[in-house]
Protein backbone atom coordinates (compact mmCIF):
# COMPACT_ATOMS: atom_id res chain seq x y z
CA UNK A 1 0.00 0.00 0.00
CA UNK A 2 2.79 2.43 0.92
CA UNK A 3 6.27 2.33 -0.46
CA UNK A 4 8.99 4.83 0.48
CA UNK A 5 12.21 4.70 -1.51
CA UNK A 6 15.31 6.51 -0.22
CA UNK A 7 13.44 9.34 1.40
CA UNK A 8 15.46 12.31 2.66
CA UNK A 9 13.97 15.34 4.31
CA UNK A 10 16.10 18.40 4.91
CA UNK A 11 14.80 21.60 6.48
CA UNK A 12 16.89 24.46 5.19
CA UNK A 13 17.01 28.08 6.29
CA UNK A 14 19.42 30.77 5.07
CA UNK A 15 21.97 29.81 7.71
CA UNK A 16 21.39 26.19 8.63
CA UNK A 17 20.28 22.87 7.19
CA UNK A 18 18.68 20.26 9.44
CA UNK A 19 18.34 16.72 8.22
CA UNK A 20 15.12 15.23 9.56
CA UNK A 21 15.14 11.97 7.58
CA UNK A 22 17.97 10.10 5.88
CA UNK A 23 17.53 7.39 3.26
CA UNK A 24 14.30 5.92 4.59
CA UNK A 25 13.04 2.83 2.80
CA UNK A 26 9.74 1.51 3.99
CA UNK A 27 7.01 -0.77 2.77
CA UNK A 28 3.64 -1.10 4.47
CA UNK A 29 1.23 -3.76 3.26
CA UNK A 30 -2.51 -3.24 3.04
CA UNK A 31 -4.18 -4.17 6.35
CA UNK A 32 -0.96 -3.86 8.36
CA UNK A 33 -0.81 -2.06 11.72
CA UNK A 34 2.64 -0.56 12.02
CA UNK A 35 4.04 1.58 14.79
CA UNK A 36 6.89 4.05 14.45
CA UNK A 37 9.03 4.62 17.54
CA UNK A 38 12.02 6.68 18.44
CA UNK A 39 13.15 9.50 20.71
CA UNK A 40 11.78 13.03 20.37
CA UNK A 41 13.06 14.84 17.30
CA UNK A 42 14.13 11.67 15.49
CA UNK A 43 11.78 12.40 12.56
CA UNK A 44 8.76 10.23 13.39
CA UNK A 45 6.18 12.94 12.70
CA UNK A 46 8.05 14.08 9.60
CA UNK A 47 7.92 10.52 8.28
CA UNK A 48 4.18 10.35 8.98
CA UNK A 49 3.62 13.71 7.26
CA UNK A 50 5.47 12.50 4.16
CA UNK A 51 3.48 9.26 4.07
CA UNK A 52 0.28 11.31 4.50
CA UNK A 53 1.26 13.71 1.69
CA UNK A 54 1.13 16.60 4.13
CA UNK A 55 4.78 17.38 3.46
CA UNK A 56 7.09 16.69 0.56
CA UNK A 57 10.37 14.77 0.66
CA UNK A 58 13.60 16.52 -0.32
CA UNK A 59 14.78 13.40 -2.14
CA UNK A 60 13.33 9.97 -2.82
CA UNK A 61 10.02 8.61 -3.94
CA UNK A 62 6.65 7.97 -2.28
CA UNK A 63 4.33 5.39 -3.82
CA UNK A 64 0.73 4.91 -2.78
CA UNK A 65 -0.88 1.80 -4.19
CA UNK A 66 2.09 1.47 -6.55
CA UNK A 67 1.68 5.00 -7.96
CA UNK A 68 4.46 7.53 -7.46
CA UNK A 69 3.04 10.78 -6.11
CA UNK A 70 6.18 12.87 -6.68
CA UNK A 71 4.75 14.72 -9.65
CA UNK A 72 1.23 15.09 -8.34
CA UNK A 73 -0.09 18.64 -8.14
CA UNK A 74 -2.14 20.13 -5.32
CA UNK A 75 -5.50 18.95 -6.65
CA UNK A 76 -4.42 15.31 -7.08
CA UNK A 77 -2.69 15.24 -3.69
CA UNK A 78 -5.78 16.74 -2.03
CA UNK A 79 -7.96 14.09 -3.68
CA UNK A 80 -5.64 11.29 -2.50
CA UNK A 81 -5.62 12.64 1.05
CA UNK A 82 -9.39 12.93 0.97
CA UNK A 83 -10.15 9.47 -0.36
CA UNK A 84 -7.36 7.24 0.87
CA UNK A 85 -6.00 8.71 4.10
CA UNK A 86 -7.38 9.60 7.51
CA UNK A 87 -5.36 11.48 10.11
CA UNK A 88 -5.40 11.32 13.90
CA UNK A 89 -3.20 13.88 15.64
CA UNK A 90 -1.79 13.99 19.16
CA UNK A 91 -3.40 17.37 19.86
CA UNK A 92 -6.69 16.26 18.21
CA UNK A 93 -6.79 19.23 15.82
CA UNK A 94 -10.54 19.71 16.01
CA UNK A 95 -12.14 22.99 14.94
CA UNK A 96 -13.43 24.46 18.19
CA UNK A 97 -16.12 26.56 16.50
CA UNK A 98 -17.78 23.50 14.96
CA UNK A 99 -19.90 20.89 16.71
CA UNK A 100 -18.77 17.29 17.00
CA UNK A 101 -20.97 16.30 14.05
CA UNK A 102 -19.71 19.18 11.88
CA UNK A 103 -16.09 18.32 12.71
CA UNK A 104 -16.63 14.74 11.68
CA UNK A 105 -18.28 15.81 8.42
CA UNK A 106 -15.21 17.81 7.29
CA UNK A 107 -13.61 15.18 4.98
CA UNK A 108 -16.98 14.63 3.29
CA UNK A 109 -17.32 18.33 2.48
CA UNK A 110 -14.69 17.86 -0.19
CA UNK A 111 -16.64 15.07 -1.90
CA UNK A 112 -19.76 15.23 -3.99
CA UNK A 113 -22.36 14.17 -1.45
CA UNK A 114 -25.75 15.33 -0.22
CA UNK A 115 -26.09 16.87 3.23
CA UNK A 116 -28.27 13.98 4.40
CA UNK A 117 -25.75 11.38 3.25
CA UNK A 118 -22.95 13.32 4.92
CA UNK A 119 -24.87 13.41 8.17
CA UNK A 120 -25.70 9.70 8.00
CA UNK A 121 -22.06 8.76 7.48
CA UNK A 122 -20.85 11.12 10.23
CA UNK A 123 -23.36 9.66 12.70
CA UNK A 124 -22.27 6.14 11.75
CA UNK A 125 -18.61 7.06 12.34
CA UNK A 126 -19.50 8.61 15.71
CA UNK A 127 -21.39 5.47 16.64
CA UNK A 128 -18.28 3.39 15.94
CA UNK A 129 -16.31 5.44 18.46
CA UNK A 130 -19.18 5.52 20.98
CA UNK A 131 -19.98 9.23 20.73
CA UNK A 132 -23.34 9.31 18.99
CA UNK A 133 -24.89 11.04 21.99
CA UNK A 134 -22.51 14.00 21.78
CA UNK A 135 -23.10 15.19 18.23
CA UNK A 136 -24.17 18.71 19.21
CA UNK A 137 -21.39 19.28 21.71
CA UNK A 138 -18.42 21.44 20.89
CA UNK A 139 -14.85 20.16 21.33
CA UNK A 140 -14.18 22.30 24.40
CA UNK A 141 -17.16 20.61 26.13
CA UNK A 142 -15.49 17.20 25.82
CA UNK A 143 -12.73 15.38 27.70
CA UNK A 144 -9.40 14.62 26.02
CA UNK A 145 -10.40 11.01 25.34
CA UNK A 146 -13.71 12.07 23.84
CA UNK A 147 -11.97 14.63 21.62
CA UNK A 148 -9.61 11.98 20.35
CA UNK A 149 -12.55 9.72 19.60
CA UNK A 150 -14.12 12.55 17.59
CA UNK A 151 -10.80 12.86 15.75
CA UNK A 152 -10.87 9.14 14.99
CA UNK A 153 -14.47 9.39 13.78
CA UNK A 154 -13.38 12.21 11.48
CA UNK A 155 -10.46 10.08 10.24
CA UNK A 156 -12.67 7.10 9.42
CA UNK A 157 -15.80 8.85 8.13
CA UNK A 158 -14.57 8.80 4.55
CA UNK A 159 -13.70 5.09 4.85
CA UNK A 160 -10.02 5.56 4.00
CA UNK A 161 -7.74 2.61 3.44
CA UNK A 162 -5.00 4.17 5.52
CA UNK A 163 -5.05 5.84 8.93
CA UNK A 164 -2.05 7.80 10.07
CA UNK A 165 -2.03 8.39 13.80
CA UNK A 166 0.56 10.74 15.29
CA UNK A 167 0.87 9.86 18.99
CA UNK A 168 -2.89 9.47 19.34
CA UNK A 169 -2.64 8.67 23.05
CA UNK A 170 0.10 11.21 23.80
CA UNK A 171 -2.21 13.68 25.52
CA UNK A 172 -4.36 11.09 27.30
CA UNK A 173 -4.12 9.14 30.56
CA UNK A 174 -3.55 5.40 30.40
CA UNK A 175 -7.23 4.42 30.61
CA UNK A 176 -8.23 6.81 27.84
CA UNK A 177 -5.16 5.78 25.86
CA UNK A 178 -6.17 2.15 26.09
CA UNK A 179 -9.67 2.99 24.86
CA UNK A 180 -8.26 4.78 21.83
CA UNK A 181 -5.89 1.90 21.13
CA UNK A 182 -8.83 -0.52 21.29
CA UNK A 183 -10.69 1.50 18.68
CA UNK A 184 -7.68 1.54 16.37
CA UNK A 185 -7.11 -2.21 16.82
CA UNK A 186 -10.76 -2.87 16.06
CA UNK A 187 -10.63 -0.76 12.89
CA UNK A 188 -7.56 -2.66 11.77
CA UNK A 189 -9.03 -6.07 12.48
CA UNK A 190 -12.65 -5.60 11.54
CA UNK A 191 -12.29 -3.23 8.59
CA UNK A 192 -8.82 -4.21 7.44
CA UNK A 193 -7.73 -0.54 7.65
CA UNK A 194 -4.00 -0.01 7.29
CA UNK A 195 -2.68 1.96 10.25
CA UNK A 196 0.66 3.64 10.78
CA UNK A 197 0.96 4.97 14.31
CA UNK A 198 3.71 7.09 15.81
CA UNK A 199 4.10 6.42 19.52
CA UNK A 200 6.50 6.77 22.41
CA UNK A 201 4.74 4.03 24.30
CA UNK A 202 6.52 0.70 24.00
CA UNK A 203 3.52 -1.12 25.49
CA UNK A 204 1.19 0.23 22.75
CA UNK A 205 3.72 -0.36 20.01
CA UNK A 206 3.98 -4.02 21.00
CA UNK A 207 0.28 -4.44 20.29
CA UNK A 208 0.88 -3.57 16.61
CA UNK A 209 2.13 -6.01 14.00
CA UNK A 210 5.47 -4.31 13.34
CA UNK A 211 7.63 -1.65 14.92
CA UNK A 212 9.78 0.70 12.86
CA UNK A 213 12.48 2.40 14.91
CA UNK A 214 14.04 5.71 13.99
CA UNK A 215 17.07 7.44 15.45
CA UNK A 216 18.43 10.78 14.27
CA UNK A 217 16.41 10.56 11.07
CA UNK A 218 17.63 7.10 10.12
CA UNK A 219 15.80 3.83 10.27
CA UNK A 220 17.47 1.60 12.87
CA UNK A 221 15.04 -1.25 13.06
Amino acid sequence: MIQLNNIDKVYATNTIETTALKAINLHVEKGEFVSVMGPSGCGKSTLLNIIGLLDSATNGEVLIDGQSVQKYGDIKLAKLRNQKIGFVFQSFHLINDLSVLDNVEIPLLYRRMSGAERKRKALAALEKVGLKARTKHFPNQLSGGQRQRVAIARAIVGEPELILADEPTGNLDSVMGAEIMDILMRLNKEENTTIVMVTHDEHLAKQTQRIIRLFDGSQVG
Binding site: H93, L94, I106
Partner: peptide, 10 residues
Protein backbone atom coordinates in the same frame (compact mmCIF):
# COMPACT_ATOMS: atom_id res chain seq x y z
CA UNK B 1 -6.93 20.42 9.16
CA UNK B 2 -8.90 21.13 6.00
CA UNK B 3 -5.86 20.57 3.82
CA UNK B 4 -5.21 17.23 5.59
CA UNK B 5 -8.71 16.05 4.86
CA UNK B 6 -8.85 16.94 1.21
CA UNK B 7 -9.13 20.65 0.64
CA UNK B 8 -7.01 22.18 -2.10
CA UNK B 9 -5.15 25.46 -1.57
CA UNK B 10 -7.55 27.11 -4.01
Amino acid sequence: IRRSFGSTAR
